[in-house]
Amino acid sequence: MKRKKENFETAIKCTVIVVMLLIVIFIGMTFLWIMISSYSIDQFNIVLCLCIKNAGSYSVLLVGIVVTTFFQIYSKEKEKEEEEKIKIGEVGYYTLAFRRPDDKYEEVYNGDKIVVEINNETDYEFQPGKQTEYYFHFFTKFLTSKQKSTNLKNIMAFSDEYFEKNKKDILSNYYHYCEKITYPSPLYCSTKPTNELENNEALDRNRYFWLIIKLYERETIKNFWISAVTEDGILLFVKIKARLTCLENMSQIVLLQQTTYFKSQDELCALYR
């Protein structure tokens, strides 16, 4: 219902622009008539009325132009909406999963394939091994409800505060934020279908990445965002609420809640089916 209202409002706005353009044309015709005739500027209203009167035979055509413009724009917006529905319907659900003790696949952290939680502008220049204080790494992968594995690219992480502050610009200029990254982020990350019960070590090598989280407390509940671009070109965002425990010999993250969103016309929409 909201989208229909937006489509209607867009069509109205464009139609108003067309009407304004017609008004400008009539005003321009009036000034031109005054310039090439014996009428004076004081007789502007009279000349304008004559222009409108002489254009009376074209009134049906003008009305047709306005009406046609409205329905063409509205139909195009509806077409875009339907295309987006099809795309979203094919996306499937994506969720985050963290390595559990019973996972067979292991990988030593070496500062490669990392996604750093952006809290401020300096985090874009994160250098593994040089910024260890308050930063903790977690072995992370994506799960998908699709029957087959898909690839995600341009994966990023944002603190809740940073994302809320820059949300509008992130949605409209997402790749600009990706280009600011100087750390070795994963080019592509393969997702694991939820129907694949057993782990596959060869495939898991392309699924996991290291999520770098900044913490000032050893035990806390934290909200943050993970974003990625799907193979279908959909920009996804997953809002995470997790309990993090970072002791001397153990770092653990437990998911409490997560909600998947997607970008639609520079807005954030929850992914419902």
Rank of each mutant, 00 (worst) to 15 (best):
K2I: 14
E6L: 15
N7R: 13
A11D: 06
K13L: 15
V18H: 00
V18T: 10
V19K: 05
I25Y: 12
G28S: 14
W33H: 06
I36V: 15
S37P: 02
F44P: 07
G56R: 04
G56M: 07
V63G: 14
V66H: 02
V66I: 15
V67Q: 08
F71L: 14
F71D: 04
Q72P: 01
S75V: 05
K78T: 01
K78C: 10
E81K: 02
E82P: 03
I86P: 00
K87P: 01
Y94D: 02
L96F: 09
F98N: 03
R99Q: 14
Y105W: 09
Y109P: 07
N119A: 11
T122M: 09
F142R: 06
F142C: 09
S145Q: 10
K148W: 04
T150A: 11
T150M: 04
F158E: 08
D160T: 00
Y162V: 06
E164Q: 14
K167S: 14
K168D: 10
I170Q: 08
C178Q: 11
C178N: 11
Y183C: 05
P193H: 03
N200H: 12
R205S: 07
Y208I: 05
W210F: 15
I213R: 09
Y216S: 11
T220K: 13
I221F: 03
I226A: 08
S227Y: 08
E231N: 02
L235W: 01
K239Q: 15
K241T: 13
R243W: 08
T245K: 12
C246E: 07
N249Q: 12
Q257S: 12
T259Q: 06
F262K: 05
D266Q: 04
D266V: 03
L271G: 00
